[in-house]
């Protein structure tokens, strides 16, 4: 298992190398550069050239790349052109928000999706199955921002049950040692603060988790349906095992294998930020941060951010593969 993990982590090196080249060329291929965003209307060709020179953008691309990678090797991702803060600090400030949001969204999707898909798969063509099919299609079809606005309008504006913007009430001034607001509230013993942060997560998590929910429901349904026809399920029935044992031990465990893969992929995607959801709910995570960096051509932030998210994605999928080994002994062996 350790060997497997190490091998997978070593694979990160070529992935990151390739990705860094792509991103490096991509941002430089965009029309305009950081000087456009920095100078705006005050821009003159001389001033623009001066800004470009200050950030080394006048040098040949391969030279820029070499010196950038030289610094990255020392884990120095540079300084944001917009805020003049180190990129690592900027990411460190936003990433916890994204993790919180993604975790809640995936929890929402898993806690509802697996049972729903399971019941639908056990009783195909029943009303639960039909309802879940229609619901899943709706969930995939509705644009995230539309759903976000709808939820916000209904539950935040009309009913006033839940907050519709931000990560925490601005009047709460608790310490944030970790940046995970719910966790911070718990750590500092400020339970109302944790509760408030949690309430702020509900609407964005539902909006963001709807597509994963629909996908997980469909995959679980298909897997349960298929596993139900397996010979070993018939064996379990022939052994006279009770219905609940057949269901839990023989069907569910085997059906979960493909579901776990999907959960991993979806988690990886959610962790790379949710631009639309974050924008609708003014939730300052990686998504809106990366989007604004792209608009202002903040090269160091775009480059560092994408490399960071690639590492996150690979690590999450590695964890999924490792967890796969716990469920499926055949994977463990090979």
């Amino acid at each position: 298992m350790l060997k497997f993990a190490v091998r997978r982590l070593l694979l990160l090196i070529p992935i990151l190398l390739g990705l860094s080249i792509l991103v490096f060329l991509f941002v430089r291929a965009l029309p305009g550069g950081p000087e456009t965003a920095l100078l705006g209307e005050r821009s003159t060709p001389e001033r623009a050239a001066a800004v470009r020179a200050a950030y080394g953008l006048d040098r040949p691309v391969y030279e820029q790349y070499a010196s950038y990678m030289g610094r990255v090797a020392k884990l120095d991702f540079g300084v944001s052109i917009q805020t003049q803060q180190p990129v690592t600090e900027e990411i460190g400030r936003r990433f916890p928000a994204t993790v919180e949001l993604a975790t809640m969204a995936i929890l929402f999707a898993v806690v509802i999706g697996i049972p729903l898909g399971f019941v639908a798969g056990r009783r195909p063509s029943s009303w639960v199955d039909n309802l879940s099919t229609v619901g899943s299609l709706l969930g995939i079809a509705i644009p995230v921002f539309a759903l976000g606005f709808l939820l916000k309008y209904l539950f935040a504006v009309k009913l006033g049950w839940l907050p519709g913007t931000g990560r925490q009430d601005v009047r709460i001034t608790t310490e944030h040692p970790t940046g995970f607001y719910v966790l911070d509230g718990l750590l500092t013993g400020d339970l109302p603060a944790a509760w408030d942060a949690l309430k702020h997560l509900v609407l964005p998590a539902v909006a963001l988790g709807t597509i994963p929910l629909a996908i997980i429901t469909r995959i679980t349904r298909a897997a349960v349906l298929e596993t139900g026809n397996e010979d070993y399920v018939r064996t379990a029935e022939a052994k006279g095992m009770t219905r609940s044992v057949v269901t839990r031990r023989h069907i569910l465990r085997n059906a979960l294998l493909p579901v776990v893969t999907i959960i991993g992929l979806q988690t990886g995607l959610l962790l790379s930020g949710a631009i639309l959801t974050e924008t609708v709910f003014a939730f300052g995570g990686m998504g809106s941060f990366m989007a604004s960096a792209l608009f202002t051509r903040d090269f160091p932030v775009i480059q560092g951010g994408i490399l960071f998210l690639a590492v996150v994605f690979v690590v999450v999928n590695l964890l999924v593969d490792i967890s796969y080994g716990f469920i499926d002994p055949r994977v463990r062996a090979s």
């Binding site: 010979d231 070993y232 018939r234 064996t235 052994k239 006279g240 499926d328």
Partner: peptide
């Protein structure tokens, strides 16, 4: 059904054709 499940495996047992697929792979 409950009574039938109590008979299966205890009074009447069954062996199937394909031992590759008739055993649960994760147990």
């Amino acid at each position: 059904e409950d009574e039938l499940r109590a008979v299966r495996g205890r009074e009447i047992a069954m062996i199937f054709q394909d031992p590759m697929s008739s055993l649960n792979p994760v147990l």
